[in-house]
Design a protein around this nucleic acid. Structure first.
Lengths: 165, 165
DNA sequence: TTGAACTCATACCGTTTCGGTGCGATATTA
DNA sequence: TAATATCGCACCGAAACGGTATGAGTTCAA
């Protein structure tokens, strides 16, 4: 459920590695070695990250990649969207943001009445899901900061985060 | 990103419909009509829901389906997992719970050092993601209860829910 | 100026998953 | 016993995913 694609995994790992290297410019080859991902695959991933402004590239010899911003300024939602494209929790209609292509609202799904009775609440869930991911900076992944206020074990109802969707 | 499969959509819509019907036993055919999903597809979905204890079935004529529990007792995580199988946010190793088959820990991925430096924090994210979904009851989807404490608009940092992964 | 070391962009392909269909078996009721 | 259901597979086409290959452009250093 809600799993990431493997490429998104790679992106996360690669970005974390770059974050740990700080200012250093790392060639795709060396990054691939460090992270144990086949070079051509990593190349693809890095390109997508480039186009989404998450890394910057320096061409030519001695070139390579570097984070475009500080690791604290990059969040999980960005990374995932960079690789997997804009989101939609359910097929049911719209995204919310870059809604452009939603106009190809074609054949199926949302001309159904009762399924769209679902639409509003599902979208709300999706919204808060996205905000949840937006709140997690890359730095937390890269440096594995043990977070101050974790979840309160298994006290049945999860605290805060879940209650207010 | 993080999108549900279409079948999970159908499951959600069907369950919501059942929730609204209360005690009524609804045949697959009538449910399919109500929800505008092709009958054979819905049949598959209902079977999966049956095996995961979310609905109960009554066979024979006048048979049909009904929620196995009150809508308040069914949460989103259950529904999604029933359809899409147990979760893993990242390929990176384990689930956490029914970890059995994780032993087929085969060819790839997690024999890599640096990628597994990622493992712990990613799993923590996944954990809280799951708890988040566990906190949303079917009743909220079915009856679209407008929630008391929504998100505070676009105040940059999302409140509560996101801060504490 | 030449060549090496890179990035960049795209096209391609095999495999898996997804969405959907069909059918035979079984169970229940009238 | 006939009608109406669920049940449980197995099947198929299409799309997405994961991975590979290749050619072109860019920069730097000798």
């Amino acid at each position: 459920m809600l799993s990431l694609t493997r490429k998104a995994d790679y992106a996360l790992v690669a970005l974390a590695e770059l974050a740990q290297r700080g200012e250093e410019t790392l060639s795709a080859r060396r990054l691939a070695d460090a992270v144990h991902v086949p070079l051509p695959v990593l190349t693809n991933v890095l390109n997508q990250l480039l186009h989404n402004g998450l890394v910057i590239s320096i061409r030519g010899s001695q070139g390579g990649y570097r984070l475009a911003r500080d690791a604290k300024q990059i969040n999980l939602a960005e990374v995932i969207e960079a690789i997997e494209g804009p989101a939609r929790l359910a097929q049911c209609c719209g995204d919310s943001g870059g809604l452009s292509i939603s106009a190809h609202a074609e054949e199926q799904a949302c001309n159904l009445e009762s399924s769209c009775r679902i639409k509003a609440p599902v979208q709300r869930v999706h919204q808060s899901l996205r905000q949840f991911l937006s709140g997690i900076p890359l730095s937390q992944i890269a440096f594995d900061v043990p977070v101050a206020l974790g979840f309160k074990s298994e006290s049945g109802a999860p605290d805060g985060a879940a209650g207010k969707y």
